[in-house]
Amino acid sequence: MNEQTAIIDINNLYLKSDQGEDIFCGLNLSLLSGQSACISGPAGSGKSSLVEIILGLRRVESGSVEVFGRNISPRAGTSLLWVRRKTGGVGGLFGLVPSLTVEQNILLPLVIDGVPHDLQKDKLESVLNAFTLTRVSMQYPSSLTRVENTLVQFARASIADQPLLIIDEPSAGLDPQTYDRVFEYLVNASVGGRSMLIFSTEPQTRQLPFTAYKKIDSRRLI
């Protein structure tokens, strides 16, 4: 069995809002490779702030934040780019690039990573089929429905196969049938060894394998 490395390691995190109110007081989060966590909490509990911290968009008061073994802060420079390239995202902060077609949006992580064109083509076809997006592949995000938009984000997160996937409200705006497909994708991703950090307002009712269920309460994760 492979030795499990820490994907996310957050220790004793303190964060205040711009108004000076405490958001996190001594928050700890550890996620080993292959493990996932579903974090629930009401609106304003700090879910988005946690995503921003992990992606190096926000500075913390104190505490350490390590992602893929690298210290993360807005000034982390190349480490930050490296971590972001290894992190896929759906919903919340993550969105589509309006000036690119669905196909180009999906391919974007590979383009940024410098993956050769031939490899991109093979992967694109399978991802478009998996998320039934072939019909809209040449359309721009502005002409997509909300469901299609979310599926394109999942397709983008799927194509690069990054070791960490951050999902904000996976069921938002999805009809039950589409959510079933998305959930199936999440199960496969989890079984396939990808680590996921799933944020939702309501606690998830369906259980994912290798996943810890936590909620933000009193500015900590429990």
Binding site: L55, L81, W82, V83, R84, R85, K86, T87, G89, L93, F94, G95, L96, V97, P98, S99, L100, L108, P109, I112, D113
Partner: peptide
């Protein structure tokens, strides 16, 4: 918006 998204993807 597009530039911010690409920054998030590690560009």
């Amino acid at each position: 918006v597009g530039l911010r998204q690409m920054r998030l993807l590690g560009a």
